[in-house]
Amino acid sequence: METRVDQQIEAATRRNKVHPHKMVLYVGITSLVMMFIALTSAYIVRRASGNWLEFSIPGIFYINTLVILTSSLTLQLAHRAFKRERSGAYKGWIVTTLVLGIAFLVLQYMGWEALAAQGVPLKINPAGDFVYSISWLHAAHVVGGIAALAVSVVLAFVLKLRRTPVRQLRLELIMIYWHFVDVLWLYLIIFLSLQR
């Protein structure tokens, strides 16, 4: 669809060293960051005005943090295997990443259940509602990443692995986004742990 500006994009990339599509993604990520900054700021403002239920975050969320951090690592390994055109390793790592991503969602769901079980169900106090809503919104962004990963898993098995600029760019775009949802979760879990 977008081959029509390719020539100019190529020239621009040579000059600026950042591919415009990566730039598009970086700029888009900035706006997503603003969304979460808004929510965590709202959290701070709301907490300061009292009537706030204090509780501890279920341990499962911390375990899950390790899961998503690991998935970033495996994606990085997949990228390395891709660059070296090692098809078997690439397939293995990209599938592992997808599995870890899905595992993250499942564990998040269990985390929400654990939170409700420890006496903080939805609607009892904004303190709990914030944890739910912020992690829901984050999970929605993880779903987007999983969709992209799923496509690359399918392509990994359908296409013969060849390192072309277009395919490397696609993989790198997915990688940037996945690292973003990872770091975002790290920020959120640290924020939610410290703000109590």
Binding site: T30, S31, L32, M34, M35, F36, I37, A38, L39, A42, R46, L122, K123, P126, D129, F130, S133, L137
Partner: peptide, 23 residues
């Protein structure tokens, strides 16, 4: 930088309307 913040405001508003939270 500013429109995403409006989205966040609407997100919480929709939860208040639809789910019954009290933001």
């Amino acid at each position: 930088l500013s429109f995403p913040v409006l989205t966040s405001a609407f997100f919480l508003l929709m939860l208040d309307r639809g789910v019954g939270t009290s933001f």
